[in-house]
C-alpha cells in the first residue's frame, strides 16, 4: 500500500512542517514516554546502593556478628543517607511533588509502584532505627537487642524495596522495557553486588581484616554471578538496541560495560588493599550506572546519540 508522502502546502505564507512527524501513523511510536527524566537511572542506582548495602550488612552481621558488627554499625547510617537521597529523587520526579503522600492513599499490590512505595516507606523505619541505634551505640548508649530487632525487621521490606524496581520498569508498554524480562533479576542481583562492594570498602577503610577476607571472596563470586542476569537482560534487549543504536555504538557500550565488570574482578583477584578495593568499587559503580543509563532509560533514549539522530 502506498502512502502519499507529499506534505501539504499553504498558499500565502507557507509554514514549514514540524520536524520529526512522519506522514501517516504506521511508523510512529504508539506509546508515550513517561516524564521520568534522567533521574530514573540515578534512582535505580541509589535504590540498589542503599538496599544492597543494608542487605549485605544485615545478612553478614546476623551470620557472623563477631566479624561484621563494627562495620555494620557504620553501614546502616550510610545506607540511610543513600535511601534519603533516592527518596528525594523519587519525589522530584513526580509531576506534582507536593502530592507525594498521595502514594500512600491506597495499597495496591498489583501496582509495582504502589508496592514499591509502601516497601520503601516501611523499610525506611527499621533502617532509621538501626542507623540511629548504631550511632547511639558509638556514643555509649547501647540498645543491642533493639538494634538487632530493627535489622531483622528491615530485611523483608529492604529486599522487597530492591526487588520491585526492575518489575516496575518491565511491567509496562514501553519499547524495550516491556521485553526486559530479566531487568528485575539483574537489578536486584546488582543491588546485592554493589552492597557487598560498599560493605567491603567500609571494612577496608576501617581496617577490619577478617571482614575484608570474607567479603573479598564473596564479592568476587558475586561479580561473576552478576554476569548471568546481565547477559540474559542483554539478550532481552538486543532487538531494541539494534533499532536505537548503531552497531558501533552497541560495541562501544558493550566494551565499556565489560570493562566495568572485568576490571573490578581483576583487581579483586590480584590484591585486597584499600586502594584496589576502592578503585574496583569505583569501576563497579561506573558499570552499574552505565547499565542503568543505557538499559533503564531506554524509552527516553540514552546519553548516546540515537540512530535516528545521526
Amino acid at each position: 500500500m502506498h502512502t502519499d508522502s507529499r506534505p501539504q502546502q499553504a498558499s500565502a505564507e507557507p509554514l514549514l512542517p514540524e520536524r520529526g512527524h512522519e506522514v501517516g501513523y504506521e511508523n510512529g511510536p504508539v506509546t508515550k514516554v513517561p516524564g521520568w527524566h534522567g533521574l530514573i537511572a540515578w534512582d535505580a542506582l541509589l535504590n540498589g546502593m542503599a538496599t544492597g548495602l543494608f542487605l549485605a550488612a544485615a545478612v553478614s552481621e546476623l551470620a557472623a556478628p563477631a566479624v561484621f558488627m563494627r562495620v555494620a554499625k557504620v553501614a546502616y547510617p550510610v545506607a540511610l543517607v543513600l535511601l534519603l537521597v533516592d527518596l528525594g529523587l523519587l519525589v522530584l520526579d513526580l509531576g506534582d511533588p507536593s502530592r507525594f503522600h498521595h502514594m500512600l492513599r491506597v495499597f495496591k499490590p498489583g501496582s509495582p509502584m504502589s508496592l514499591g512505595t509502601w516497601c520503601l516507606t516501611i523499610f525506611s523505619l527499621p533502617l532509621t532505627a538501626a542507623a540511629a541505634l548504631s550511632l547511639l551505640a558509638e556514643l555509649g548508649w547501647d540498645f543491642e537487642w533493639a538494634r538487632l530487632l530493627a535489622v531483622v525487621v528491615g530485611l523483608l521490606p529492604g529486599f522487597a524495596s530492591a526487588a520491585y524496581k526492575g518489575v516496575l520498569l518491565s511491567t509496562n508498554a514501553q519499547p524495550g522495557w516491556k521485553d526486559a524480562r530479566w531487568l528485575g533479576g539483574y537489578l536486584t542481583n546488582s543491588a546485592l553486588v554493589m552492597g557487598c562492594g560498599e560493605f567491603l570498602v567500609l571494612s577496608a577503610l576501617m581496617g577490619q581484616t577478617q571482614a575484608i577476607a570474607i567479603l573479598r571472596t564473596a564479592f568476587i563470586v558475586l561479580l561473576v554471578l552478576n554476569v548471568i542476569p546481565l547477559g540474559l537482560l542483554f539478550a532481552n534487549l538486543r532487538p531494541i538496541h539494534a533499532q536505537l543504536y548503531t552497531r558501533e555504538q552497541q560495541w562501544r557500550v558493550g566494551a565499556l560495560i565489560a570493562a566495568g565488570a572485568l576490571i573490578p574482578l581483576g583487581l579483586m583477584l590480584l590484591k585486597g588493599s584499600v586502594l584496589s578495593i576502592s578503585v574496583a568499587m569505583i569501576f563497579l559503580l561506573f558499570e552499574s550506572w552505565l547499565v542503568r543509563a543505557v538499559y533503564v532509560k531506554i524509552p527516553h533514549t540514552s546519553p548516546l546519540e540515537v540512530r535516528s539522530g545521526e
Binding site: 557472623a64 530479566w182 542481583n189 546485592l192
Partner: peptide, 26 residues
C-alpha cells in the same frame, strides 16, 4: 514471572554471601 526472576536474582546473591560467610568465618 518478572517478580519471580527479580526475587531469584536477589536470593541467589544472598545465598552466595551466606555460604561464603559460613565457610570462611573463624
Amino acid at each position: 514471572g518478572d517478580y519471580v526472576r527479580s526475587v531469584a536474582g536477589g536470593l541467589a546473591a544472598i545465598a552466595v554471601l551466606l555460604v561464603v560467610v559460613f565457610l570462611l568465618k573463624p
